[in-house]
Structures are given as structure tokens and as C-alpha cells.
Nucleic acid binder design. Sequence first.
RNA 1: GGGCGUUUAGCUCAGUGGUAGAGCGCACCCUUGACAUGGGUGAGGCCAAAGGUUCGAUCCCUUUAACGCCCACCA
Length: 794
Amino acid sequence: MEKNYNHQLESQIYHKWEISGFFNPDYLPNAKSKKGLKKYFSIIMPPPNANGSLHMGHAVFITLQDILIRYHRMLGYITLWLPGADHAGFETQVVFDKKLEKEGRNRFKIPKEKLYQEMLKFTLNNKEKMKNQLKILEKEGRNRFKIPKEKLYQEMLKFTLNNKEKMKNQLKILGASCDWSREKFTLDKDIIDIVYQTFEKLKKDGLIYKGERIINWCTKHQTSLSDLEIKYEERTDPLYYIKYGPLEVATVRPETTFGDIALAVHPDDKRYKNFIGKIIDIETVLGKKQIKVISDKAVNQEFGTGIVKVTPAHDLVDFEIWQRHKNEIPPPRQVIDNYGKMNDLAGPYKGLNVKEARKKICEAMIKKGLLDPQKTDNQYKHNVALCYKCKTIIEPLILKNQYFIKMTQKPKSGSLSLRDMAIQAVQKGEIKFYPKRFTKIFLNWMKDLKDWNISRQIPWGIKIPEADTDDVFDTWFSSAQWPFATLLATSQSKTKNFYPKIDLFKKNKQIKILSDFEKFYPTSVMETAWDILFFWVARMIMLGLYVTKKVPFKDIVLHGLVRDAKGQKMSKSKGNVIDPIEMANKYGADAIRVSLVLGTALGNDQSISEEKIKSARNFVNKIWNIGRFLKYKNLTIFNEKENLIDPDKLSLADKWILTLFYKTLKDCQKYLKNYKFNQALEKMNNFIWHEFADWYIEISKSEKANVRSEILRYVFTEVIKILHPFLPFVTEKLWEDLNGQGLLIIAQIRKLDKKLYFKRETAQFEKIKQKIIDIRKKEPTKSIKVIFEELNKL
RNA sequence: GGGCGUUUAGCUCAGUGGUAGAGCGCACCCUUGACAUGGGUGAGGCCAAAGGUUCGAUCCCUUUAACGCCCACCA
């Protein structure tokens, strides 16, 4: 055995596991046994986005889930960890667009003719200027909006599948013991079929409606976004006061004036009581017009003049006002197009973008005396909606054929809305959150749930099956079905129709071979980062309950985000990104795993630094060297069939270490049960290092101590087992080097035996320990062995 | 506006109703036959502030402050 643990061997160890077949629950030794009740444990891996490389966030969930999986496998559960990848619709589109932009800088990729013509057009003297112009041109050359959709889709598929493979290898580096034979991708044919069937079911149940609705539009990415995909930022913009005939309106968006269909006041507002229901004559920049005044409770009397110009095509609140007054006022009038430019209705301002139009329109208004610049509030602060990816200002627009899922309406076939199903499951405790506080956060969010727009206008995704649309589903619509979709897809079946299977399982008990869905659904744990609680977890609960009538998982375990050593968010631009694969190559996967578990509480954000990984590596090495000590003494792994020695023959130190181990293991298992990974590992860490190695092994070096080698082997073996889920590689290697039978990955963790608990002897030994400590304070160079023997003589 | 979290050793953070912990860093010592990626010793904290419950509070309750996050959003 080498003096230091060599993590270069990790890939070999992983290979050994993989060919053993034990990642696959079908091949686990206990899977075939007919005796007793089979226990199943399953986790569906949150599909990492197949659009880039693994980052520390991935490393966290791989580590935590692998710990749970390996632990349960060693407890004798038939354990499935189903890996997957997500096509990640919009996220991938954004990444891919950037890639195109970059490639576009390579001028050889642009059609020659086009380049030539454009270059002629821009006859520039200044070289620098020309360069910039070229860059702009080049970007256009590979703009996704100019590439045929089908071609683009194929290119993106290739791109994504490549990333998927890359990612898979990275998961292996970290030791993920998932069943690759069951791997699923959200664009697999069978998954898409299931997604379509869910869509149909929702439609039949009256939970889907297609409508002309106002949506959040990103003018850069050319797609609508859900409410969750929008971030707000405080901005200071001028608040203008504009005359509408005898009335005056305060607004930050004068450019939408061409889309006004009414003015609204509060029904109780005495100032404008006489105007309600009347049509007034107004002067606009485009001439004389008429507009109706209506009353609506949404209007705030305190704000501005207490009058709102109603522009339903470009404002969410206005849209709602229009819906309430459809019969009295004209339909919405769109004046801004999909690219954020003014359209025909804007007359001379057509073609201008919003910012330019606003400026020119204000100027014209001032000229006409419609806008008093003196009144303008230049310090007005308000929140502006932005695309969460590119920070482009969101343009609320009305889009046709948008699909929405009703969240708060009962389905025809059931008595609870999607939202209420989920709320009830959580309130009843069928689903539990770890840490607990997320229960409240979850319920609080569910309370105000709005309908979910599942239409997206990007090319990348699952096409919505309707003749009249090119749209794809919101990626989260398919992800929301992941737990049951994957397990149904891996279930053996001749029929292409997946749904009847669910009912079949219920009715037909004579099916002898249980399918994956029957065995593993509901899954045991959903472990993921808290930041996708609403995007994903909540929607999985709703659709899972809706389709299968069962919760998709029993426990939800949420971990925090990974930050750098100073607690700052990692980002490429800051240059503080720590790459888990790079670190794994440098210090080993076990070190990464330990560094991500120790010193952090579940659900809290955590800091990671190379220093921390280094110290974790030291811990790994310590364990390695404890194993090396056994090897040096010619001691081997304690065989499963061996019986423990008669307690009467044990020495004091033996009884002490057994008792301590008993307590430690008990604590460790209790912590793991509650997903307190850090405390579980810390307990074991402290035990193996500061009790087992520092004391038990040191004392054992003295023959006077009469330490039984069986006990040393036994405790070490059991420690290696319980540590294996945390540090799979080094423990497996030790298992092999010390003649463990078979692979450690499926070794069974022994149940606690109360006979191994010796209270009195433990207290006695602690006293001796204390004496030695006191002596060492005076004589620090003396070894424990020597002091122990001196004490023995007295 | 509503909700959540954090505040503990120089730094990063664990933790518990009963004399404060880890890792890293720092000072000094030790190459002892598993391990210098090690071992030993030590310095360093009125556990954010105030009040309450309790025999006893860093931990439970109330209030406050600072910082951070999430949700909603009035033109």
C-alpha cells in the first residue's frame, strides 16, 4: 500500500462498480430473495441541464443523493437512483444563442456574398469602426431567427446530446452510483409521449385553456416567459403628466398612448364622479380622438392624478381592467411589435424602439401643450420587469394561442384543483420538507398561485401538439412529470399508451413482475437546491398527484447554493468559479464530497474553497493510513460470517471502543435519517480520527493493553462501511486491499447490538485516558504507548 | 407591503435548555516503527442588543438593529 492515498485510481474503482451491475436494483443480491417484504428506496435525479459542464451546485446534489443511495443500498434496500438529463428549453436556447454569437465572430462562417454586399454598404475608412461593424454583421450572420427552425433544432439536439455525454462522465468522476441503464432524457420518445398524454388529460379535465392573453415577452429571446422567469429591478424613470382633454393622467409610458382604449378612475373617487361612463373628446399627438371613462377598483386614488390610461395590450393590470369591462370598451390595441418597436398604429413613430419613441412622443406632446414638463417627476422610482437571463425589459404583449394551465380550478374528474391537491398533501404530512422551514415558504407561495403559461416560442423543446402553433412547452411542464414519467418509461410494456398502466397496476394484482413504477413510485426522496422549489418541486407535486393520485416523493430535501470562500456567488465574470472536476482531478472525488458535506447545515448556502477541499483530502488520507496500519499488522476486513469474540475475553480498551462506536453509529444513523449529513459525517470523523486512531490504535501498540485484533478489525470494518456513502472510493479501495469479500458497495451495515455496550468499563477507560493526557501535558514527547505502560506498572 | 433566513474564535461555518466547537490561519514543540496530507501544547468568543419564561438561556418567547434572500407590485 502506498503511503498516501492515490486518488488517480478512482476511475478504476468506478469502473469496477459499474460492471458489477449493482447500480442496477435488478441485480442487487437481495432483489431476488423471495423472503420477507421487499424494501424499496428510490431517488429520481434532478436532471442537470444538458447545456454545459458540471458546476459545484451539481456536485452538491450528486454527493448528497449518492450518500442516501449508497447508505440505503447497504441497509439492504432495493435501491434505484435514476439519472436523467433535461433539455432545459429556454436555458439551453440562451446558451446556444451565445454560442452562435461567438461562432459568428469567425467571419468565414458567414456567407461570402452577404459579407461582400454588406461591406460595400458600409464603406468605412476607420479600421476600428469597420471592425465593430463587422462584428455586428457577423452576429447577424448566425442569428437564430434567420436559421430554419428544423435545422436549428437538429443542431441543438446534437449540441445537447454531446453535453449530456460530457456531463455523464463528470457524474461518474464524482462517484454517482446511479443506474445508467435506466437513464432518461426529457426528449426521449417515450417521455414525450407521456407528456402529451398528460396534456390531453388536462385538456379533457378542462384545466387547459388556450387564449389570447397578455404574456411576458422577452424581445431579445423572442419568447414568452412565465411569472417565475421574471426578475424585478428598481429603476428611476420620469413620471409624466399628460392631458387627456379635461383630464390628466400620470404615466411612465407615454409611447403606449396609441393603445389607449379607455381612462379608468376609482368608483369612489369624488373628483371624477361625473365623468364615469361618459365619452370625452381629447387631443392627442395624432389629432382629435374620443375616449370613454370607466370606473374600476384597481385604480389607486392616491397615485398620480387618480386616473389610469387603460392600455390592455401592454400592461398586465390594464389587461385585467379590460377583461372586466369588455362590453363597454373597445378591444386591446397593440402598438408595439415583438421586437419592441412601434407599429403602424404609432403613425410617424413606426419603427422606432420604445426608448426612442418615448422621447420623440414626449417632445411632440410638449409642443402641443399636452405634457407639462414642469410637472414631470424625474425621481419616480418603480420596479421594472426584466428577463431573468438577459435583463432585457419585459414587454407585456398579447399573444394568440397561448396555453395556460388552471391552477385553482377543480378538474372535471376530481374534487381538488392542482393547487389544492398539493397543499393538502403537504398539510397532511404526506410530503415532508427538510429543513422544515420550507413548508411555510411553500404553502405561502401556493396561496397566491396564478395560471401557468406553458407556451414558449423558442425552437428548442417539446412541440405543442396542435395544428395552429409552432410553440413548444415550457421546459418545466415536462420536468414536472419527471418522477412518474421516467418510471413509467422504464417499466416494461408493449403498449405505447402509458397512462392505462397506472390503473392497471391498481386493479390487476396478478401481475407477477413488478414494474419500476410499482416498485419505486412514489419515490423516497426528492433532493434538490431550494432555488427551484417553485419552478420544479411544486409543479412536480401538483402534476404527480394529478396524474398518479399519489405524491411523487415522500421527503423533500433542499440544499443551499454554493458560494466562494468569501460567501460571494460564483460566476465566470468574477473569476471565482471552483470547478468540481478540476478539484476532483487534483484532490480526488472523496475530498470534494467531504468538503461539501462537512461544516454546512442543510438548506443553508455554503462557502467552498480550495483550502477546504485540501483539508477534506487530509481526512481521506487519514482514513487511508488507518487502513495501512491494519495492513502493516496483517489484519483484514472483518468477515460477515465471523462471530464476535466472547465479551469476557475483551480488554478494557476493546470494551471502551466498542461502546463508543455503538454510540457513534447510533447517532450517525439518527442524523442520516433526518438528512443531517454534516452531523452524521462529523460524528464519524471525530470517532475514527480522535478516538479510534489517536487512542485505540495507539494503546493497541502496547501489548500490555491486550487489545483484541478482532475488535480492531471489527470496528474498522464497520466504520469503513458507514463511511462508504460519504467517501466511496477510498473505502472501497481499503476494502479491497484488506481482503474484504466482494465489493463494499453492497456490504451490509450491521444492526446495533446492545451486547457491545459497556458503560462501566467505558468510564474506567476514560479515566485512564485523562491521566495520560495530564502526563503528556508535562511530557509532550512521550508516546501514549510508553505512558500507558508506565501507568500499568504502578 | 408579505414571508424567510443570517448575526458564535482572525476567516469559513457547525452545534446544544446545564462548564462554548470544527476546519483553515497563528505561536511553540515533536520526524515515535499507519499517517508531517501527521501528532502535541497554546493564544483567541460577555454565542448581535434589550427584555421575558426557567433553578439555569448562545439555544425557547417578545422587541430592536444590521445584512442577505424570496414573493407581490399602482399607471
